[in-house]
Design a protein around this nucleic acid. Sequence first.
DNA 1: TCTACACTTCAACGATCATTGAAATGTAGG
DNA 2: CCTACATTTCAATGATCGTTGAAGTGTAGA
Lengths: 119, 119
Amino acid sequence: MDERQALAAFAALGQEHRLRVVRALVTAGPDGLPAGALAEAVGVGATNLSFHLKELARAGLVLSRREGRSIRYRADFSGLSELIRFLMRDCCQGRPEVCAPAIAALSPCCPPAEDTARA
Amino acid sequence: MDERQALAAFAALGQEHRLRVVRALVTAGPDGLPAGALAEAVGVGATNLSFHLKELARAGLVLSRREGRSIRYRADFSGLSELIRFLMRDCCQGRPEVCAPAIAALSPCCPPAEDTARA
DNA sequence: TCTACACTTCAACGATCATTGAAATGTAGG
DNA sequence: CCTACATTTCAATGATCGTTGAAGTGTAGA
């Protein structure tokens, strides 16, 4: 992920409704949610949601796929992963003062990590 | 870090000049840089830089301290750390698909992490 | 105290963003 | 083909953001 893409991703997450959309989609898991359900979950109009979803897609944070007459959105886990990597490595230069506490706070659910990697 | 603060931090990093400022400050290390040097490093006018620095401070990403007639800015490592934690845990729910690759990409410089933690 | 310096605050502007209702697109079923 | 439905695109609006020059604040030294 280059700086340009990271900028787009940060800007995308720096908006209340969009951050909620991402969180809702992560919570929903790999299957994601149809746009209608998302609109209700986030509490935003259909037109407005569509605008934000396009922004999130441009930023590489969500994926979509038509399914019957609705369109199902899901979080782009690899995009989120790359963003975290950018923040830790390219931006913070892997400084232990920054990265170690963040990783430690995660240890209960996400131990050492070995073959799970598939960047 | 609550959602409100995370939003401010993401929005702050979603701007080219501000992202560059943060990267320059991280690179500069714990001593940081005086505003003048930052302005030159980032290639932005003094007035404009001051605006962005205030935004970054509000977002909890930089700290400042007067030093003679200049003001020295430095990255707020704990703020950056909390943002990464938020992104991994609160936003992505610690999903291994997301977190493991990001952590793995860091392993050369930032191994397992134990007593280093000081959230 | 006077001047120079480093930076910030203020006021103004154009540009981009978020939101809305109305119209268009695409899909499914009768 | 026609209607109903889910979502997007379009056009328009007010709000916020990024940038600039001019003026202000605070610090250091002669």
